[in-house]
Write a protein that binds this DNA or RNA. Structure first.
Length: 673
RNA sequence: GCUGGCGUAGCUCAAUUGGCAGAGCAGCUGAUUUGUAAUCAGCAGGUUGUGGGUUCAAGUCCCUCCGCCAGCUCCA
């Protein structure tokens, strides 16, 4: 007997296998019509899925939890999008000759499909493809699931002459049970499914972009053409989605960085090499001081090391054999005297550790440095400040005993969270980068790896951090916990990182030791950590996070004194001098412009406070304070105004009031004024 | 690095089928003396990313290189 449990608690019994569609029809015609897919025991399946999945023994009772999914359920959206991918692929095959299909999965925010075809797809092809998709949708042909044995499936894809599908079955898919196809009209695609019953519920779709992509991610293979697209159940949702994308693009740090004069990159200097303009340098300086204070509080010691090191240093560390491709070419003095621009700081810090014998009494030894490193990233990888060739890490290396690892690791995670929280950066995920058991790029013993991976898991669990484990994301010398954020166009970036390392201290590498209480040498463990990651990337992300509108404590220019007319310039200068003396970052706008024009300029430069001074203020020794967000706060004494700002700075107050857009030149949609 | 797209004044963008490189903002000069998002006028600003080619004629067409953008691959 099959017992089907529904979410409302009701139970239906069947004496033979049954599909979700039949259950839906029994419940009512409305639901039967609205149902798009189902969830059986937590797994999303099509309406034609046979329950139970495994044939039960004749006598045993079997329980199945069934949820019928309609357009209101988020899971149904992904199913519909995947069906839309099939419709798109079908349209492309109708429009172009010799189309070879690769993969077409659902992704966050939409879907894509990879094709191999002669014609070079451009966005100009989109209207025709979309029109063809509409024709297909209007036909309203059902998506039909066809199951075949692996051998039959192979014959099917051979008959269709679909090379990638053939290869996928031959090399990618084992012989488990059988394989499935989905047919819709003349279109047949090898596909696990599930799909919606028919394309009529594809409400609104849009092709977004076309780009190259490698078959199965292998860069030695031919590149395919990928069309990215998205779909929603109704037009309004699609419109909102597209608006969100546009809104996010307005925060682009590369655009804001130029408009707000934070940084510049010039091909004469080189790709991926950032020059910090004075205003950007202020933000960086304030952040660095903030971190330095925190380091002092947490028992770190500052060190400085040079920007180059001899090649032997990196041969010993293991970096050179593994990563010479992404290091800058050595500077050759003599054949056996070659220098490398340092790609990381750890080997230098290790040499500081080795400067003399170490006792267990001085562990944990925490060595910190804002260390500038250079990595020869491939040209296509570079992007603004988030992916560069030269950057400065808020780096530190902790040398500790085995027993101290967990506490130190905990402290690193705590500091990272503290720093991010202080900036209102809470939208991150924690990724545990683990060793990929199938790769040989890692150094050190498997036992060491498993031991340190387990410590990471334990500490995160004890701190209540939800961390996702990702094999293959580890550094070559050890596992790590990364704080990952998303930029304005949806790309993920690693910021803060804490990495456990049993390998660089090992005998094969630097052979680090300390003398224990037992008067015997012992091996320390290293932790590499950087709460911000790199100053470049972090501030790039921060620009997007604040849409260029930095909180008062970070703002390059905190206050601007505006005169109503040139008649008040003397008083304006007096106020400005006072503010400067009090330590504020401030300027004066004493131009012969109308007040409105000066305010407009200040607002567009996203300056947190403007002090307006006119004859009335001069007479009463006040300033009329204008807040970037709340507007005119009225006149107050200079002392009160200063106290007001002081407080906001001391609290490191983050006042996020925008819905996304800020910066110069798009006042129309901005709403923070 | 790969695939595709792009590159015109400091910025944002124009420039019929190949036919005299232009506007707004910013900048400079002058006038205006203004109380919470743009005062007016004038001036100046360019080897159209680079190097080559086709052509009577190239911003426009072709090739090289450089750079940027999106994606892929990579990311100690």
């Amino acid at each position: 007997m099959l017992k089907v449990h529904l979410p409302d608690g009701t139970e239906k019994q069947y004496s033979q296998p049954i599909t979700p569609r039949t259950v839906a029809e029994e419940i009512g015609p409305g639901l039967a019509k609205a149902a798009l897919a189902a969830e059986v025991d937590g797994k999303v399946v099509g309406l034609d899925f046979t329950m139970p999945a495994e044939a039960a023994t004749a006598t045993a009772d079997q329980d199945v939890n069934l949820r019928l999914l309609t357009r209101k359920d988020p899971e149904a959206l992904g199913v519909m999008r995947h069906s839309c991918a099939h419709v798109m692929a079908r349209a492309v095959m109708r429009l172009f000759e010799g189309v070879q299909l690769a993969f077409g999965p659902t992704i966050d925010g939409g879907f894509y499909y990879d094709f191999d075809l002669e014609h070079s797809l451009t966005e100009e092809d989109f209207p025709a493809i979309e029109a063809e998709m509409q024709k297909i949708i209007d036909l309203d042909e059902p998506f039909e699931r066809i199951e075949q044995t692996r051998d039959d499936a192979l014959k099917t894809v051979r008959d269709m002459d679909q090379r990638y599908k053939i290869e996928h079955i031959e090399t990618g898919l084992g012989d488990h049970g059988g394989l499935s196809f989905y047919r819709q009209g003349e279109f047949l695609d090898l596909c696990r499914g599930p799909h919606i019953p028919s394309p009529k519920s594809i409400g609104a779709y849009k092709l977004l972009s076309v780009a190259g992509a490698y078959w199965k991610g292998d860069s030695s293979r031919k590149q395919l053409q990928r069309i990215y697209a998205t779909a929603f159940f109704d037009k309004k949702e699609l419109k909102e989605h597209l608006e969100r994308i546009e809104e996010a693009k307005r925060r682009d740090h590369r655009v804001l960085g130029k408009q707000l004069e934070l940084f510049t990159i010039n091909p004469m200097v080189g790709s991926g090499l950032v020059m910090w303009l004075p205003k950007g340098a202020v933000i960086r300086g304030v952040l660095e001081n903030f971190v330095r204070d925190e380091l002092t509080r947490r028992g770190y010691q500052a060190v400085y090391t040079p920007n180059v090191g001899r090649i032997q240093l990196y041969e010993t560390s293991g970096h050179y054999p593994y990563y010479s491709a992404s290091m800058f070419t050595p500077i050759v003095m003599e054949e056996d005297e070659q220098y490398i621009l340092k790609p990381m700081n750890c080997p230098h810090h290790i040499m500081i550790y080795k400067a003399r014998p170490r006792s267990y009494r001085e562990l944990p030894l925490r060595l910190a440095e804002f260390g500038t490193v250079y990595r020869n990233e491939k040209s296509g990888e570079l992007s603004g400040m988030t992916r560069v060739r030269g950057f400065t890490q808020d780096d530190a290396h902790i040398f500790c005993t085995e027993d101290q690892v967990e506490g130190e690791f905990r402290g690193c995670i705590d500091m990272t969270r503290f720093v991010l929280d202080s900036l209102g950066l809470t939208d991150y995920r924690v990724r545990l980068g683990f060793r990929d058991p199938n790769s040989d790029k890692y150094v050190g013993s498997v036992e060491n790896w498993e031991r340190s991976q387990q410590s990471l898991i334990d500490v995160c669990a004890s701190l209540g951090i939800e961390a996702q484990q990702e094999p293959g994301e580890a550094a070559f010398y050890g596992p790590k916990a990364d704080f990952v954020v998303t930029d304005c166009i949806g790309r993920e970036w690693q910021l803060g990182t804490v990495q456990l390392d049993y390998n660089l201290p090992s005998e094969q590498r630097f052979n680090l030791e300390y003398i224990g209480a037992d008067n015997q040498p012992h091996r320390p463990v290293m932790i590499h950590r950087a709460p911000l990651g790199s100053m470049e990337r972090f501030i790039g992300v921060l620009i997007e996070h604040f849409a260029g509108a930095f909180p008062l404590w970070l703002a390059p220019e905190q206050v601007r004194v505006l005169t109503v007319s040139e008649k008040s310039e003397d008083y304006g200068r007096e106020v400005l001098t006072r503010l400067q003396a009090e330590g504020f970052r401030c300027t004066g706008d004493f131009r012969a412009e109308k007040l409105g024009a000066k305010i407009r300029d200040g607002q567009l430069e996203l300056i947190p406070y403007m002090f307006v001074v006119g004859p009335r203020d001069a007479e009463q020794q006040t300033v009329s304070v204008r807040d970037r967000i709340d507007g005119d706060l009225g006149a107050m004494s200079v002392d009160n105004a200063i106290a007001h700002l002081r407080q906001e700075i001391a609290e490191k107050k983050v006042r996020k009031t925008y819905s996304g857009s800020a910066g110069l030149g798009d006042r129309g949609s901005a709403n923070e004024y």
